[in-house]
Amino acid sequence: MRRIPLVPLAFLFFAALVPGARAAQGEAVRITGEVIDTWCYFSGVMGGPEAVVGSAHHTCAMWCAAGGIPVGVLADDGAVYMVMKWQGAPEIADGTALLDTQSHRITVDGTLHVRDGINYLMVAEVLADEGIVNRSHEDYGVVPPFAIPELSQ
């Protein structure tokens, strides 16, 4: 019986694994953008994407973050980075750690993993927080209108 050479097989095995190992490590990135509610932004459930960012949507963004919907960072080029860790911690889906930055323009350092077209961002450190700079309520009012109870009475 012919013996299969183990060294080439081992080489092929590890060669196949190495790209995977690199991908699992992700890419170090610095991202600047606005913290957004990804459900309302992508689903259109409350209208177009311009109306569900910034001050117009601030209260709803807090609701969605507290409700466990993934928070994103909308970069200036339109790319959205789904936040999977915040300041190194993965236990973020109760929203508590992210409530104070909803709708804020921030700059973060972290690790980016791109999988099946989605940007997954592991935020290691928040470098800057400019607060809310997108005063979208001046164009869109408040979205949804019932976010301010005084306006729906």
Binding site: A24, G26, G68, P70, M84, P90, D94, H113, Y120
Partner: peptide, 21 residues
């Protein structure tokens, strides 16, 4: 599974018990 597990291999047995995406 949870996203951090799938992306990095950090895999708690309970997927974070609702605290991980």
């Amino acid at each position: 599974t949870d996203a951090v597990c799938a992306l990095t291999g950090d895999c708690p047995a309970d997927c974070g018990a609702g605290l991980r995406q």
